[in-house]
Design a protein around this nucleic acid. Sequence first.
DNA 1: GAGGTGACTGCGA
DNA 2: CTCGCAGCCACCT
Length: 111
Amino acid sequence: MPDLNFYDMVYQVARLIPPGRVTSYGAIANYLGTKGSSRMVGYAMGSCGAAKPPVPAHRVVNSQGLLTGKFHFRPHSLMQQLLENEGVKVEDDKVVDFKKIFWDPAVELAM
DNA sequence: GAGGTGACTGCGA
DNA sequence: CTCGCAGCCACCT
């Protein structure tokens, strides 16, 4: 186990999200074992701009499927645009059929 | 070393 | 149904 920081863990999981799918901060936090610290996931995303390769943060939404982090994108509509570009329908800043396209690392990457 | 911050979550009124 | 509060933990200054 290298000295991967919590940030790197989040980035790696986020990059594992397949196109057309989305996950929640809590799901990633849960997979990382810090389920109680869902904030850390979002906070880690705050530095996603410094991650290489870039992290598809647009595939990460809150537990409600709302694009809470869209305001961190430039422009703010970029997040929705990227999701729709991958086939994810977004309406009223929230993912349509969120629970259907929901990708849980704790399940998909289970073991 | 200590303090402040934050792209969240869940429960209570 | 909608609004508000408290908990949580790692990173930064």
